[in-house]
Design a protein around this nucleic acid. Structure first.
Lengths: 244, 244
DNA sequence: AATCGACATGCGGGAACCCGCAGATTTGGA
DNA sequence: TCCAAATCTGCGGGTTCCCGCATGTCGATT
């Protein structure tokens, strides 16, 4: 049995290697890669069926790497190993996991024992293992009180990128007013309206403030922004042509 | 000789411990703490004179911890050990280092040897050691082409927090127009103006876009935002009283 | 069939924002 | 001491943004 480890921090990579060898005696070879691109390449060359992936790497973060790996072999078992439990990451992963695939999400702060169990459950038993704290986010993102619609998340990204209402409208094929409607819903759900103590004047620029609190609450993060920025650049390119 | 290590990741903590013992045979005791608060406490109890500090921890990140440590004993030698070379971090540190203090800034990606040299230079020779990549930022932040004035950085933070022009004016004791002037300079330096191909309409909301590119360029980061948010909350508190 | 909720769209107005212009004030050297 | 550069300030305007109100569509429920 082979296991591929993709992780940019050499310390964590060594630690993972140890953990894998200890938890999986049936594993005879451990491959290692230091970034997403190298990871994809190794996975392809060795037709890896078991992968441990760090999120936040560069170039090519864990989510992107997972997408291409799963596109080539959807039955690959992937364990995501990350520092944080951000909504941006969870949303990103649940968007790309193929039907029926075995995968897991374990935080780096987890104990050795929890990591060991996750490794065996996913790689041997083909079960899904999601860390408890991450689980909480998943529930929410599926539509509870603090849950956002996909379309609301879309405008959130768009204003985080700094787009104009009008531009958002064109990009999403909506009218100007509809975009503004979504924005209002977003402001509502983010609780971005000032307490409005009596007649106190407005202190916040709602649009910017919305981005701020999303960042503070980790609804979006740096890597999500980077990815969105690249998508945007591609769209701007296309739009520039068609508009002329 | 004693050395205090403050680092939340247990792996990195262990690695640092090893590195310190190897580089400094004259060091007989190594203390360890897992977050900023515990670090400050240990430093106080043991009157530590040599500290290795991780930035980005919680609660209480490295910069805050360094500030209280230096306030109590300005001659303490501190080695900052961090993942990134952000402008936000560099600016934060250079703001709090006492005159004549020995300190260093080494990236986690540095080689064992470089870390060893830094440890000896700072803790034994009382020299300052700044990683080359970080050095680059320091130059810039002191006023080159892409360098920002302190006041420009101030408004950047303020709009990143989502404040209104008017609120910024009150907070910084400026007129509305002055704030807007600074904003224009900021937009200029961030290169946030669209190429303006002929008569193409504006695609970006300048204000939001400015925040976006600052994030992408790591001029501000999550922890800087969090800190600024707390400062803001404190000011809002005070302002609420005086305004009534 | 009637009703309800979620979403899209138009209109209109008040507030905030972006910015050119021009005068005042401060600052840092010759 | 005096000049020049940088910074602060007010005025006026065009634009964008925020949002209440009204209308229309579509699917699910009763």
């Amino acid at each position: 049995m082979k296991v591929l480890i993709v992780e940019d921090d050499p310390l964590h990579r060594a630690y993972l290697g140890e953990a894998v060898r200890a938890a999986l005696p049936e594993c005879d070879t451990v491959l290692e890669a230091a970034d997403g691109l190298a990871g994809e390449r190794l996975a392809r060359e060795h037709t890896s069926e078991r992968v441990v992936l760090d999120l936040q790497m560069s170039p090519r973060n864990g989510i992107e790497a997972a997408r291409t790996i799963w596109r080539e072999r959807p039955e690959t078992r992937i364990l995501f190993w990350s520092n944080y439990a951000d909504e941006a990451n969870v949303r990103g992963i649940s968007r790309i996991v193929p039907a029926g695939a075995a995968y897991g999400y374990v935080l780096k702060s987890a104990s050795d024992e929890r990591l060991r169990l996750a490794l065996r459950s996913i790689f041997i038993e083909d079960q899904c293992v999601i860390d408890r704290e991450v689980r909480g986010l998943q529930q929410k993102s599926a539509g509870a009180v603090s849950g956002f619609t996909d379309s609301e998340y879309e405008v959130l990204i768009d204003i985080a990128l700094g787009l104009t209402d009008r531009t958002i409208a064109r990009r999403r094929n909506l009218s100007l007013r509809s975009v503004q409607n979504r924005l209002q819903q977003l402001y509502e759900k983010l609780g971005v309206y000032q307490p409005n103590d009596g007649d106190a004047e407005a202190r916040f620029n709602l649009r910017s403030r919305a981005v701020t609190v999303s960042l503070l609450r980790k609804l979006v993060n740096h890597t999500a922004l980077e990815r969105a920025e690249m998508d945007l650049a591609r769209w701007l390119e296309r739009d520039g042509h068609t508009q002329k």
